[in-house]
């Protein structure tokens, strides 16, 4: 009985051990080793020296700032737009399914696709935005003032589908009779939205906020495709991009990448813990 159970869970445990737990823990060791700038030299133990060095570097501080700033732009706007679409589509009409499919559509467009599409729009020569008069010098995607915003727009559009789907599910979980009770009780449509829908939606809004922030922290493709190796100069080098550069950039530095990975993990973890605490409270509230 037990044997067969272990056989059943062995394959995923093996995969997780090799490709999740081991590399995760290995970060903590790797962080203490420095790779010399010359190829084929063994890395050497430097203790917390490297950790301190990375954490105090202007590059890291800038990257962390960029990551947070990027999330602060992308997450609230993305969620609010998703909620607006969900509210608009949350009515009983013929053919509403078509609109729902359209609003969900960006969920299947990858960051790569979104990045290429918007990259073209922002192209200084053939792009749509320059034609609309948005054509700063240097061009949008080579302009330190505009680049992060441009990358954010792509991210928001690409995340809109998921945001819409989650918000729609949330809206549908608000009981209709409670909304009707509010209607009879004298609440205007706006009052119903703010005093009934939003409070009843808040657990889902919170969930979406955490999930969206975590996923914003992991953004990479749009940055790689739109601003690429200029990212540091353009202030679009989020943590994940910095990790990538330390793995496959011009001067790979696994130790530094490990330190950055740990930071990224801690950011994610803190958000998850907040989420867990909140979920726990919510469960108690439901009892």
């Amino acid at each position: 009985m037990s044997l067969i159970a272990y056989c059943f869970i062995l394959p995923p445990l093996l995969v997780f051990s090799v490709f999740s737990f081991y590399p995760f823990l290995h970060n903590f060791k790797e962080a203490l080793y420095q790779t010399p700038p010359y190829p084929n030299e063994p890395s050497k133990y430097v203790g917390f020296h490297q950790v301190a060095q990375v954490l105090s570097s202007t590059q890291f501080v800038q990257s962390l700032t960029t990551t947070i700033l990027f999330s602060l732009i992308v997450v609230p706007i993305g969620l609010i737009l998703g909620l607006l679409l969900a509210v608009a589509a949350n009515r009983k009409l013929k053919a509403i399914g078509i609109y729902r499919t359209i609003f969900s559509s960006t969920v299947v467009t990858s960051v790569a696709i979104a990045a290429v599409i918007f990259g073209t729009f922002m192209d200084p020569v053939v792009g749509l935005l320059p034609w609309l008069g948005i054509n700063p010098m240097p061009p949008l995607l080579q302009n330190p003032t505009w680049a992060l915003l441009a990358v954010s727009v792509v991210t928001i559009w690409q995340g809109l589908g998921l945001s819409f789907i989650i918000m729609s599910a949330g809206l549908q979980s608000v009981p209709e009779d409670v909304l009707e009770a509010a209607e009879v009780d004298g609440a205007s449509p706006v009052a119903r939205f703010w005093h009934v829908t939003v409070p009843l939606l808040s657990p889902i809004l919170f969930f979406a906020l955490v999930v969206a922030t975590i996923s914003a922290f992991q953004s990479f493709g749009q940055i790689d495709l739109l601003t690429g190796s200029n990212s540091a100069y353009l202030h679009t080098d989020v943590l994940t991009y910095l990790i990538y550069q330390n793995i496959q950039g011009q001067a790979p530095n696994p130790g530094v990448a490990s330190v950055l990975s740990i930071v990224l993990f801690l950011l994610t973890l803190s958000l998850t813990l907040i989420q867990l605490r909140y979920v726990e409270r919510r469960v108690q509230y439901a009892l």
Binding site: P175, D177, V178, E180, A181, A182, V196, P199, L200, S202
Partner: peptide, 9 residues
């Protein structure tokens, strides 16, 4: 209402 439809929050 049959379900009472109280405001749960």
């Amino acid at each position: 209402f049959q379900s009472y439809a109280l405001y749960p929050h």
